[in-house]
């Protein structure tokens, strides 16, 4: 709920460039507050309510799990997992998945072509081993690259 609210709030941002500009110095001046509300499509009342709700949710989370005791190294992967599995919109997950499937199928098809090429060459045993091993290695590396890109796609 805490993360979901945070995600919903950040989704309200209309101008990402402006957000970066506002947060570049790590603090908000009095003069920037109105712009901040405008950029996040909110107003003072809504924002105060949002902060109150988040604070109470954080307190209850902290009471239950004692978040202060958990290191960032432990907490970040858990938050990422929750974010990917529960909060990331289905369409975004599906785009990453589709791209991954396309990448691995094209790597597999390419490998089939190359294995066929190795066979057609009618090589000696040693040259054949080298040829087919190289092809399998290329497929494995392409698959790993696609897997890395798939994981990175969620963190964008």
């Amino acid at each position: 709920m805490y993360l979901k609210n945070q995600l919903e709030f950040s989704k309200g941002a209309t101008d990402t460039k402006k957000v970066k500009e506002l947060l570049s110095d790590g603090k908000l001046d009095e003069s920037e507050i109105d712009t901040y509300f405008k950029v996040f499509s909110t107003d003072e009342t809504k924002f105060t309510n949002y902060i109150k709700l988040q604070n109470s949710l954080y307190t209850s989370l902290n009471d239950e799990y004692n978040l202060g005791e958990i290191s960032q190294e432990t907490l970040i992967p858990i938050i990422e997992e929750i974010y990917i599995k529960d909060l990331l919109p289905f369409e975004e997950r599906s785009t990453c998945k589709q791209k991954y499937i396309r990448d691995i199928t094209s790597a597999a098809a390419l490998a089939l072509i190359e294995h066929g090429g190795c066979i057609a060459l009618d090589l000696t045993v040693v040259a054949g081993i080298i040829c087919h091993s190289a092809v399998s290695l290329i497929q494995w590396n392409s698959g790993q690259d696609a897997l890395d890109a798939y994981h990175a796609c969620f963190k964008k």
């Binding site: 990917i84 294995h115 087919h132 497929q139």
Partner: peptide, 25 residues
Amino acid sequence: RVYLLSFFVLLTILMTIYFLSRIEG
């Protein structure tokens, strides 16, 4: 050599299945 090709086709398919199994969610 045709049998050998079948083996590599199988290897390619297995590798693809492995990568497909890594899909999350």
